[in-house]
Amino acid sequence: MEYVNHLKLQKACQFLMFTPMRIKEITIEIGMNDPFYFSRLFKKQMGMSPKTYRAKRKEHEEAEPKI
């Protein structure tokens, strides 16, 4: 079960980084039903909320020099 959740969270990270999808939409897309449970699980595994993860990733991309 833990491995399955790990795979779901990896997929969620991709959605957070590369799409404008809402947390609820990502939750459904990765096969979970409860966005609150997803957010708690994400924070437990990743050390930050999905919203913070997306913001930090976006911040990181903006800081990188474009070639």
Rank of each mutant, 00 (worst) to 15 (best):
K44Y: 13
Q45N: 10
A55D: 14
G31Y: 06
M32T: 04
P50I: 03
S39P: 03
I67S: 11
P20Y: 08
I67C: 09
R54M: 08
Q14C: 07
E62Q: 09
L9S: 03
N5C: 00
I67Q: 10
K43N: 12
T19Y: 09
F15H: 09
F15E: 03
E61S: 15
K43Q: 15
E2T: 04
F38K: 03
P20R: 12
K56Y: 13
P20S: 14
K43P: 01
R54T: 05
F15W: 05
Y53P: 06
H60D: 10
K24I: 02
E59S: 13
T52I: 14
E25P: 01
A63P: 02
M32Q: 13
T52H: 13
S39G: 05
K44F: 14
Y53M: 06
L9T: 02
Y37V: 13
M48N: 06
S49C: 07
E64A: 12
N33S: 09
K66C: 04
M17A: 15
A63Q: 10
A12P: 02
M21W: 10
E64Q: 15
M21A: 11
A12Q: 03
E25R: 05
K56Q: 15
C13N: 09
M32E: 12
M48K: 12
M32H: 05
F36H: 08
P65V: 07
T27A: 01
M21Y: 13
E2G: 13
K8Y: 03
N33Q: 09
R57G: 07
V4P: 00
P65N: 05
Y3S: 09
E29Y: 03
K44R: 15
G47Y: 13
T19R: 07
G47P: 11
M17T: 13
S39N: 06
G47N: 12
Q10D: 06
K11D: 02
